[in-house]
Design a protein around this nucleic acid. Structure first.
Lengths: 223, 223
DNA sequence: CATAATTGATAGTATTACTATTATATTTGC
DNA sequence: GCAAATATAATAGTAATACTATCAATTATG
């Protein structure tokens, strides 16, 4: 994974940013450091002013890249799902056994990310922590419908539908493929969150993983 | 349901509010109208000033009931889950068949709420809409752990664990009862959200319901 | 009816979420 | 290598948010 992705640019919808952060040093610094800052203080407490101080730049310079912090979070999320799609496609294409293919796909989308150093300025492990803690906020706004029309969530939906296609190969008769996969993808983020914060309502931990739970679930549902 | 609950006060943790809104006319007005206002403009755009204008009261008066809008949302959520617990207990206690009991429980926690007029000043159908759109925000904060220690999410966790107990009656061998139920409860809110906003990644709609999907899921997983 | 408690009105602070302007630095194209 | 274009920094300013404090007016209760 490390070597393969190092030179590939993740595709992110142009409407999400004012100026593409990948095209300049400052832009990359904004992305790199916003990940650390959001992880440490939480998205609600995160402001462009604080980020500016952290990277030694002016608040107004950051506004030239992103309209507001919500769009920045949408950008980070899009990047994450784009990266996830890559991992998914790359590690499932050559598997001929349908069940094995699905197992691999579920592993990819439900496993916690540990240090994958595939890209220079983005720490995927910490970005994964942000997605677990904050991704839901990109969707739960009054503007979802408009932003969905603009294509802000396209990559996320594409990841889901790629897994749906694999599910349908395994069991074409199962009538809830989409709901099953969206439940697995969103649910695994939730289970990771519960493992970290509300342990009394989850069975997942370091030994029994979220991935095991969903592998078992999918197998039972699709047999 | 209507008659039974009309005189029962939902239990909400005292630490959530400054002054119990159930003890005064203004308090009840705050609860009643905040539900309508959050539903119409969204929680992110909701402010105590706007609520004050709506109910013809001063902003500062609202602060005497709730420290901030986050606590108000936690209050509404607690009330909701307390009400859900009531419905759950009431409609499952006399069912002797274990599988039927579980089916009923899943129906209760996954069905969309349509006009249940059990309480005078709280519109449960609209509160259910708020829970679908905003409940996740009560958990996804930097203060989750402290608030969890204070008992802010006790009722929610209790609802989950009541269903877990029923699951264990049906199949004591199944090793992921907690994760299954937390996935169903949280996942059903998510599926309702997808039905409303991201239809391409769900199978649930008016004819094929979220409830049917989860009934099918639970049956397959626990057989 | 007096006292206590509640609510309303006003004012004020710090922070957030921006926008606009201008000066300075850095790139790039010729 | 220099001029022109572009990017960034610094400063200032506005409106809204998220409160807190004070005091007067109203309402409840013993």
């Amino acid at each position: 994974m490390e070597i393969i992705l190092s030179n590939i640019k993740m595709q992110v919808n142009e409407k999400i940013y004012v100026k593409d952060p990948e095209t300049s040093v400052l832009g990359k610094k904004i992305i790199e450091q916003s990940i650390f800052l959001i992880d440490s203080i939480g998205f609600d407490n995160f402001t462009f002013k604080k980020l500016g101080e952290k990277i030694g730049s002016n608040e107004s310079s950051i506004y030239r890249y992103f309209e507001n912090k919500h769009k920045l979070l949408v950008y980070l999320s899009s990047w994450y799902w784009s990266w996830m799609e890559y991992k998914l496609v790359f590690s499932t294409t050559n598997i001929t056994d349908k069940k094995e293919k699905l197992k691999k796909a579920i592993r990819i989308v439900t496993e916690k990310v540990t240090n994958d150093i595939s890209t220079d300025h983005i720490n995927e492990a910490i970005l994964n922590k942000i997605i677990i803690a904050e991704f839901t906020k990109t969707l739960h706004t009054k503007e979802v419908d408009e932003e969905n029309k603009e294509g802000f969530f396209l990559i996320y939906k594409r990841v889901i539908n790629r897994v749906v296609a694999i599910v349908k190969e395994v069991n074409p008769e199962y009538p809830f493929a989409k709901s099953l996969v969206s439940t697995i993808v969103e649910g695994s983020l939730h289970q990771h969150f519960l493992t970290d914060h509300l342990k009394t309502i989850t069975d997942c931990n370091e030994t029994v993983t979220t991935t095991q739970f969903y592998l078992n679930l999918a197998e039972n549902v699709l047999r």
